[in-house]
Amino acid sequence: MKINQISVFLENKSGRLAAVTRILSENKVNIRALSIADTSDFGILRLIVDQPKLAFDVLKNEGFSVSPTEVIGVEMPDEPGGLSGVLKILESNGFNIEYLYAFIGKGENGALVILRIEKAEEAIQCLEENGIKVLMGEKLYQL
């Protein structure tokens, strides 16, 4: 159920993000979702792509610090309170979220949010028990 995300360490200097996107484009890798966490010295780029393994290999070969990480994709109603409902379930069941960001495309039945969460397997189970749809990786890469 988990989704393979790729995280790339970037120095805070111009042209680094452009270099990553250029390498991906040359290898015909399509970016499905992305977010950047930045500090004064460095940034971490997180990517969901249609071909995670290929993206990982080409970036690594180009000398980037790349790390494969697992996240979950959650579908929710695209209306006020959609995300709030999901977070409420996670919170009341004691799950800590490391970070989250919105998916660029849209799910079949609403908005999509990517979550990095502790104890992912249990979280997935908990969400599903509460009627929340958690997306399969393969499905999400192709959305």
Binding site: Q5, S7, F9, I44, K60, S65, V66, S67, T69, E98
Partner: peptide
């Protein structure tokens, strides 16, 4: 090093 980047959390770095 890639080894030290196993976790992608800002806090860890």
């Amino acid at each position: 090093s890639s080894k030290s980047f196993a976790s992608d959390e800002v806090r860890k770095l």
